[in-house]
Amino acid sequence: MGNLAGCATGYVFPAAPAPQPLLVIEGMTVDFNGVRVLRGIDLTLARGEALGIVGESGSGKSVTWLAALGLLPRSATVSGSVRLDGEEMLGAAASRLDRIRGGRVAMIFQDPSSALNPVLRIGRQIGEVLARHHGVSGSNIRAEAKRLFDLVGLPDAARRFDAYPHELSGGQNQRVMIAMALAGKPDVLVADEPTTALDATIQAQILDLLTTIRRETGMALVLISHDLGVVSETCDRIIVMYTGSVVETAPADAIFASPRHPYTQGLLAALPPFEGALHRLVPIEGQVPDPTNLPPGCAFAPRCPKRLAVCEEAVPPLAQPENGRFSACIAATVQPARLSLKLNTSVLA
């Protein structure tokens, strides 16, 4: 895979899952008040891998990881299996989960200023993580916090330690969140839309920081985003989700060069190009179905330009047409799919 050529430490994402993946999710489903929003997710995460999870709102990309970490409210019913180094996390005792979360698995969110406590100084919030997971106390907290702030490129660490979140900008708060996540020396950092609320030049800084830290510490990164561009530049492998299912998984280069699932093809065609000739955008017609009223067959079938009669009857399984690539599409296996660039004349249809 040419995309790894520039990778400093050379994590080679194996085409087949490694003998011992770090994290395995199997058959995970989530129901909110009897409505199924996650319909059986299987995925593996290798050590040091950068995995991108892409999908539109309602695709279940965030719910997957909130459920895996036991962060969903009680009204959610979660089933399936989530194993971290072979150890089952679903249904584990709260005390054990508390050691894993913020320790081996850390998560950061879209809006850093609402994830931080506005009335506590930054130092106290990062100190709490250090004390809880590493038993650091007293003046060592300040020293360790300074090391972490330096690691995430937060200048003037001493003053930041005594600052409140509102005294920092959005990008600086996100760096604080990343520093807190790194405090537990995590094996996995789950970043849920970490740059969506940030300005373009700050987004570039944060993505660059996440990549640098991953290479330096060897942690795995799960980057959840609605933006194909963001995951494309940061991740080795990409999972595309639609209405609570995985529809396609492939190495980043392959998925952009030759998307297999019609939904992935549609997403890429809908993006305004940033190079080359301008053309009319090709939207995916219709809209995401309501989770309470999913079509019986493939959930994408009603919007799919390639649908066959059989698509409306059976839910397509996630098949592996070639090594390392998975796609849940019946039509694509019948006829090899090509990126459709034909221009649609009607936007209102």
């Binding site: 570039a204 800084q205 993505l207």
Partner: peptide, 18 residues
């Protein structure tokens, strides 16, 4: 800074500061 789908190897100008 514009993230472009399918592009990875580009040299990005990262501005320092806020």
């Amino acid at each position: 800074a514009v993230p472009v789908a399918g592009r990875r190897t580009r040299e990005r100008i990262i501005l320092t500061g806020e």
